[in-house]
Design a protein around this nucleic acid. Structure first.
Lengths: 341, 341
DNA sequence: TCGATTGACTAGAGCGCTCTAGTATTGAAG
DNA sequence: CTTCAATACTAGAGCGCTCTAGTCAATCGA
């Protein structure tokens, strides 16, 4: 049976604190703090002794106390909808971008039982220094109030409020790339199954029309109602299959394209043989070996990186030229587009 | 131009504290704390005055300080892989289950750049009282060390360690339901495209074999290599299409079924005409109107609820009979299964 | 009339850390 | 030998809250 080693009474049943480590090493709490934070002010020898004891006691700095005591929290809040693959991708990018800059990220999920305002509230209560909004389902007014308090970065969609930063891809440019690609392949009768009221849908729709017009194809361009879900794409496909097929279809996003492709396959319509199909987002499904969907990449990692850099720039009072960062998307050509027959 | 109302000097540029509210109302900090926590000890009149001033000053309790000062944090940590739809569903359920019980949930993402151990570390640093592990990518040893410190609940898969709680669905039972259903429809030659080394794959494979044997169909049952991704199902479909098709195929999960169905559709194989297909998980894709995948539901909301209840039971020292909670899955019959031809 | 009880409120000691303003202890320059 | 600066370390005041142990007045039963 083990007996407690001699030394100051150890408070049982509670995680060890700086104080415990300090007592064991025989130095002050401050010194241990210096060592744990890896800041200058301790000799190499002490550093090692402290680290050894910390390890031995299984000491783990208390995040709550750190956050409270420090003059800064270096906390980046992120709101996201868990079931949204785009949000998931961006959030991963945010982690990757934030940690090297010395910022921690805190996630706050938006769910059916937890509105965006609640999610935000919780981030604020931990005194995040800035927030990145992925599902910006917040009213203009509260966005304004929020932006007065701390830097706010909205990712992936426009934002009405002049005080928030925006990082998004250029939807018009994305559509231009797609249309150019299709026209170059010899297609003329091109249909866009739009995103309805989904974020960016209007911009993509307008971009599509403009690009078609630029090629003198305004009269053979069509926009039909779509949506952001697989079933919306499927519905669009059924509509299209009823009449003469266009040369190519551009969907609002990859999810919609997946539904559309599925219905085409079941209807015996070959892709890209009878019709070319282009998605949007370059999400994981687009890369599936059996789908190989031609699509537009918004480069999520870069998007996330820009969002983090912008938030940090605001926090560290670096000069910022424009509040909106519009990134150039790029076309990813895979197997669902081919030459006109 | 507005002038600051008379009263104690307001510290600018810093969020208001309890102290600020107390000073403004003319009561003690303790009283305001009592009001903010909504515990007994203040008169109705004072309560209203305090609340009014708090609102006026836009006071927001400081989560860090709360966590630090309270004798309990009532924090539930959750590790999850953001890109995993199953994790996302469970996490949503955890939020829904935890808040009514007075617990807050903290998410910690496992990403390529952030190992499970890091995710866990961060949860511990905030002094979560218990953790729910969704991607239990933690070594047995560290799982043991962890479980010594706080209640650990693993969701959706078996766990080797005797000190952690497990909440999962009964895979053997799920497979039995599927096989019964298919046999009842008149199918005999049934193939299972398994999940390889994915969690639960072995249990489902064994369950499949046992169920087939129970029907005296051991000699017409086949297991082929599959996986957990769409492309694994697609690969399995290509294998199957090369030879004589079985009467029905059961995949490891819905994602795999999606890939398999896609390849079948492209190969002109009709479902359920030529072959019936059953997935597993009843994830969102299974419900897509154009897919209508027959599948096994693990009832994620219930899974999440059980996980939370178990964690809370441990924390509040309620009696717990068995460390493993095995829930009965149920079959969801949709459009991909039909009578034998 | 008087102790006892109750309700409303306050004082003050933490929680575990960070960080400023120090105090010793060196070693080198003048 | 003094002076200066640098290095190694410590004391102690917070950070914003919770919570125990009170105080004080009003009410009540006997």
């Amino acid at each position: 049976m083990l007996t407690e080693p001699s030394g100051p009474a150890t408070r049982l049943d509670r995680p060890p604190t700086l104080e415990d480590v300090a007592a064991r090493v025989g130095v002050s709490r401050s010194l241990v703090s210096i060592v744990m934070r890896a800041v200058p002010g301790a000799s190499q020898a002490t550093r090692q002794r402290v680290l050894a004891v910390a390890e031995e006691l299984n000491y783990r700095p208390d995040g709550r106390a750190r956050l409270l005591a420090g003059r800064r929290t270096r906390l980046l809040g992120v709101t996201l909808a868990l079931n949204n693959p785009f949000h998931a991708d961006v959030a991963e990018g945010i982690y990757a971008a934030a940690e090297p800059l010395g910022y921690q990220v805190v996630l706050s999920a938006i769910t059916p039982s937890r509105a965006a305002s609640r999610a935000l509230e919780s981030l604020l209560s931990y005194r995040c220094e800035a927030v990145v909004l992925l599902g910006a389902l917040v009213s203009r007014k509260s966005l304004g109030v929020l932006a007065e308090r701390l830097p706010v970065v909205v990712v992936g969609q426009r934002s009405p409020h002049p005080a928030v930063d925006v990082v998004r891809a250029d939807d018009a440019e994305g559509m231009r790339l797609v249309v150019d690609h299709l026209v170059q392949l010899g297609h003329r009768r091109i249909t866009h199954a739009d995103g309805g009221r989904a974020p960016g849908s209007a911009a993509r729709r307008n971009g599509f029309r403009a690009a078609m017009k630029a090629h003198g194809l305004a009269d053979v361009s069509t926009v039909i109602a779509g949506g952001e879900r697989e079933e919306d794409g499927a519905a669009a496909a059924r509509t299209l299959a009823e009449e003469r097929l266009p040369d190519a279809v551009i969907t609002y996003n990859d999810r919609s394209a997946v539904g559309l492709l599925d219905v085409f396959a079941r209807s015996g319509i070959t892709v890209p043989g009878q019709v070319s199909v282009v998605g949007y987002d370059d999400s994981q499904v687009a890369r599936l070996p059996y789908l190989r969907l031609t699509t537009v990449s918004q480069d999520v990692a870069v998007l996330a990186d820009c969002a983090v850099r912008r938030a940090v720039a605001r926090l560290e009072n670096e000069p910022v030229t424009d509040r909106e960062m519009v990134l150039a998307p790029h076309l990813v050509v895979r197997g669902t587009t081919g030459p006109a027959s």
